[in-house]
Measured scan of single mutants.
Amino acid sequence: MEVRTIKVFTTVDNINLHTQVVDMSMTYGQQFGPTYLDGADVTKIKPHNSHEGKTFYVLPNDDTLRVEAFEYYHTTDPSFLGRYMSALNHTKKWKYPQVNGLTSIKWADNNCYLATALLTLQQIELKFNPPALQDAYYRARAGEAANFCALILAYCNKTVGELGDVRETMSYLFQHANLDSCKRVLNVVCKTCGQQQTTLKGVEAVMYMGTLSYEQFKKGVQIPCTCGKQATKYLVQQESPFVMMSAPPAQYELKHGTFTCASEYTGNYQCGHYKHITSKETLYCIDGALLTKSSEYKGPITDVFYKENSYTTTIK
């Protein structure tokens, strides 16, 4: 009895394709271990004539594949690729409408935090270190965002349907971005203890939790000093293409032309909904596939993004 075979390709990165001759009487799992086709788990399936010449994702289970996976995804987590594939199996079914010149995501599976993050990423200057993220990001900007969303979920250790947080998501993504040249110098002034300067680099240099107003941050924000008295913390120097200011959701007025974009969060910790506000020729609110415009805006804002380049204080 002759062994019926077909020729397929296996890959971990969709760049390096490895030619395989597979036995049609055995499952993919018996031949390769966990195997995925377009995100779908085909591990328990036997090869079919229609699979001839198709590319299958496999887990990096030998040295060659491990090197290829690390170079593309910059992670050695053995569960990463499987999590990416199972997320992709959902995100490829989502709709990605162009809204006001940006790629958004039609609401499904509690994905409003991903839509808000995706919209924000198209408006701030950011370059990702893992080629996987950078490639998928370019495709997302062009309207094909399924891979990018699935990668975000995998890097953030999230599953489809789980509630997510924009600030946490951005923080994970910033860790995989090139923020080497970003720098922030802060000064804390206390009447009792004097003053202390701190220099922050990388992710810490672009994120701040405690106030939404970048102007206020430049002037000074009140913080408790270690001595128990009130101290003032203010920005001395900022070198970065953008800054992200966050605070627990509270009524906040966004003035046209003073910011790049913002995240609105309605609801409580267990259950809520994100919308995205962007400042173009007027203010726009993007909620999944829905767009509304207004000249002014007041609502429960939790993150505001500002364009920056270089700032030095005039406070002496």
Rank of each mutant, 00 (worst) to 15 (best):
G202F: 01
N89L: 10
I277V: 12
L235E: 02
M170R: 01
T302N: 02
T211W: 01
L235G: 02
H74T: 02
V243G: 03
S310F: 10
H51C: 05
F305R: 00
V206R: 02
K183Q: 15
Y28R: 06
L283V: 15
Y234N: 03
S263M: 07
V8D: 03
Q195G: 08
T10G: 06
E52Y: 12
T282A: 13
L121E: 03
V3H: 15
T64Y: 10
T266K: 06
A136F: 07
T226Q: 14
G257F: 01
G53Q: 11
P241I: 01
G164R: 05
A154N: 05
C271W: 12
N49G: 12
T169S: 04
T64D: 10
K219H: 08
Y84L: 06
Y306C: 01
H276F: 10
E239F: 08
Q251D: 12
E204M: 08
T120F: 02
E281A: 06
A108M: 07
Y265L: 01
K219Y: 05
I223D: 07
E144N: 12
T278K: 00
L114A: 06
Y234A: 05
A136N: 09
Q122R: 04
H176V: 07
D77E: 12
A145C: 08
V160E: 04
Q175K: 09
E296R: 09
E296V: 14
Y252F: 12
E68V: 03
S279G: 09
Y72H: 13
A140P: 01
V99W: 12
N100L: 08
Q31W: 14
Y284C: 15
I301K: 00
R141S: 10
T116K: 01
L118E: 01
L212W: 04
K218R: 06
R4Y: 13
A117M: 03
C190A: 02
C261N: 02
K255H: 11
S104G: 07
E125F: 01
L151E: 04
H176Q: 11
P224F: 10
D303Q: 00
F56V: 09
T314H: 15
E2D: 12
G210K: 01
E168V: 08
N49D: 14
D109R: 03
Y284K: 01
F80S: 03
K95Q: 15
D135S: 09
V21R: 13
K95N: 11
K307N: 12
A150Y: 01
Y208V: 11
G220R: 02
V22L: 11
T199S: 08
T192D: 13
D109H: 06
I124L: 15
F259Y: 00
S310P: 05
Y265C: 02
K293T: 14
S181N: 14
M170E: 01
G220K: 02
D41A: 14
R167Y: 00
I15T: 12
E239W: 04
R167G: 01
Y57K: 05
T35F: 08
V99F: 14
Y73C: 03
T302F: 00
S79D: 15
T282M: 12
A262I: 02
V188H: 09
A132Y: 01
K44A: 15
V304F: 01
P131D: 01
E2Q: 10
E125P: 11
K255F: 08
I105H: 03
E168T: 13
D63H: 09
G82T: 14
D77V: 04
F70Y: 10
N110Y: 00
S86W: 07
K95L: 14
A142K: 15
S240L: 01
T35L: 09
K219V: 10
D13R: 03
Y155G: 01
K280I: 09
Q175W: 04
Q270H: 10
T75G: 05
T11Y: 06
S294Q: 14
Q31T: 14
G299S: 02
P47T: 04
L186T: 14
D38C: 09
V3D: 14
T192L: 09
S310Q: 15
T232W: 11
Q98I: 13
N268A: 15
L290K: 13
T75R: 07
P97T: 12
F217C: 05
Y138E: 15
L114Q: 04
C271A: 11
T198F: 14
L283Y: 02
D165P: 03
S246E: 00
S310L: 15
L153Y: 15
A87R: 05
P248K: 10
P34M: 08
H90R: 11
T302P: 00
V99I: 15
Q238H: 05
V203H: 11
Q237R: 13
G210S: 04
K127Q: 15
I277T: 01
C182F: 05
T76S: 13
S86Y: 08
D13K: 05
N89Q: 11
K44P: 14
L283A: 00
A69T: 08
G53S: 11
D77K: 04
E168P: 02
L291V: 15
Q175M: 08
A231F: 02
A140N: 02
C156P: 00
K233E: 12
Y137G: 02
Y73V: 04
L59N: 13
C225S: 01
Q238S: 03
R83E: 02
Y265V: 00
D135N: 10
S181H: 15
Q196T: 13
Y172K: 11
Y269A: 15
D63C: 07
K183F: 11
H256W: 15
Y57S: 07
K298Q: 08
S79M: 14
S240E: 01
I45H: 11
E296S: 13
S171L: 11
T232V: 14
H276C: 11
K46R: 13
T27S: 10
F9S: 09
I152Y: 03
D109K: 05
I286T: 07
T55E: 07
M26L: 10
V21L: 14
D63E: 13
K233P: 00
V8R: 05
V304S: 01
D109I: 02
I315K: 15
H256V: 14
Y28F: 14
L173T: 05
R167E: 03
L235I: 10
L119H: 06
T103V: 11
A289N: 12
M245Q: 00
L186I: 13
E162M: 07
Q98S: 09
T314A: 13
T91E: 05
A231L: 01
I223N: 03
N268P: 15
H90L: 13
N157M: 03
S50E: 15
Y155I: 06
A150S: 04
F128K: 03
E68W: 10
A40K: 14
Q134F: 06
N178V: 04
K275C: 10
I15Q: 12
H51A: 07
P60H: 07
P34T: 13
R83F: 05
Y96S: 04
E215I: 02
S246D: 01
A115W: 02
Y72R: 09
G143Q: 03
T27W: 11
M85G: 05
N268V: 08
C149S: 06
V185E: 01
H51D: 13
G29A: 08
T192M: 10
N89E: 15
S86T: 12
K92S: 10
F32R: 08
Y36A: 03
Y269N: 15
L119N: 02
T43I: 07
Y57E: 06
K95S: 14
Y311C: 00
